[in-house]
């Protein structure tokens, strides 16, 4: 149905004016055309429309004044600064092919109240691959392990700790395997310290 074909009662016209105001083009379903037809033929409709227009003009005066340009510029700088860690993370993620995006920390308001923005970086950090942290550490550990194996192979002096690890592994219990893991971790730390 074309909006031009609709007719309005005065009561319905007043209700629509209350809801949608005096800018008839914004009325839904083409009802503005029906409103124009009513305004052209009814003194009461014209009076109601004049009231609605007056309220429109009044509301226009209630628009908040624009903020000072300096204030907008300051806010823009603040936002760009807050986004610097987003930039770093995005560049890192693009390089690593990752999709985890860390949220920035440091909101001006709402301090002291845990929020998603506070928690998500920690969650993301715990999930994110650590390959970019210090690749030289992995390389160094491998080199040290290789060197350690060569020394062991050439020496008759096998450390007691390694013997103990072997015996625990042979025993096969869960607790002993945990212990063997601890021993091996200790050796790894030792290797890194010696490098």
């Amino acid at each position: 149905m074309n909006g031009k074909d609709k007719t309005l009662t005065l009561d319905r016209f007043e209700s629509l004016l209350d809801a949608y105001g005096g800018e008839l083009s914004r009325w839904p379903d083409g009802l503005g055309h029906a409103a124009v037809a009513l305004i052209e033929t009814s003194d009461q409709a014209r009076a109601l429309y004049a009231e609605a227009e007056a309220l429109e003009r009044l509301l226009a005066k209630g628009s908040m004044p624009e903020p000072e340009p300096e204030r907008i510029a300051l806010l823009a700088s603040r936002i760009v600064a807050a986004g610097s860690d987003v930039s770093t993370k995005l560049q890192s993620d693009v390089g690593a092919g990752a999709r985890i995006i860390r949220l920035p920390s440091g909101r001006r308001s709402g301090a002291g109240r845990p929020s998603d923005a506070d928690l998500q970086p920690r969650i993301a950090a715990s999930l994110a691959p650590r390959r970019s942290e210090a690749p030289w550490r992995t390389m160094a550990a491998l080199a040290a392990s290789l060197a350690f194996g060569v020394v062991i192979g050439l020496s008759d002096l096998v450390p007691a700790a390694v013997v103990n690890v072997g015996s625990f592994i042979d025993a096969g219990s869960d607790s002993e395997i945990v212990l063997s893991g601890l021993q091996l971790d200790g050796l790894s730390v030792l290797d890194e310290d010696q490098i």
């Binding site: 628009s63 908040m64 806010l75 986004g83 987003v86 930039s87 995005l90 001006r108 308001s109």
Partner: peptide, 25 residues
């Protein structure tokens, strides 16, 4: 215009812009 409060509005504006960047991909 929605909040009618300068500080709150600036916080919302900041969060909206940062969300745009975070979700850009």
């Amino acid at each position: 215009r929605v909040l009618r409060d300068e500080a709150e509005a600036e916080d919302v504006a900041q969060e909206a812009m940062l969300r745009l960047w975070r979700n850009a991909s």
